[in-house]
Amino acid sequence: MGMYRVAGIQTTIAPTKTALNLIGGTTCRPRLCELRLTTTGAPGTDAQVNARLQRSTAVGTAGSTPTIQATDPADPAAIATAGADHSAEPTYAAGQVMNWFFNPRSVIQWAAYDPRGELLIPATANNGLGLQTVAVGGATGNLVCEFGFYDK
């Protein structure tokens, strides 16, 4: 079981847009254990950004497919895949896994330090965890997001 990292950028932050979607495969259940999120560009105002992590059941159309890097170069390539900067949004299940309100100048970091705190993605095609903006507040520029996960 290796650990992997993937980063996605939502160019020109906009509401109800997905910055990064981590998608599992039929043979593995990825476990999201780390997440980092911030915006780039000088904020217009200090109005809060609202973003949330949700479970996706269809992948939508990604503008780019970021490369997933293994933290140990000896590990095999990840089975999970990722999509970023979506032009057609993934389909999300009702409810949210995490929800944040933060200043556009902020950096958010979350890490699970107990295995039961990690977020499981089902071993079902096209299911994943996506990070979507709800409201952009005073943010300008890009929304930058990074996931750390185990692929097993």
Binding site: W100, F102, N103, S106, I108, A111, A112, Y113, D114, G117
Partner: peptide, 21 residues
């Protein structure tokens, strides 16, 4: 028990919270 750590670093400093899943 399913613990995690959330840190929000902003213009007014860093706010840290425990989380659980």
């Amino acid at each position: 028990r399913a613990r995690g750590h959330l840190a929000i670093t902003g213009p007014c400093g860093t706010v840290e919270h425990e989380t659980f899943t």
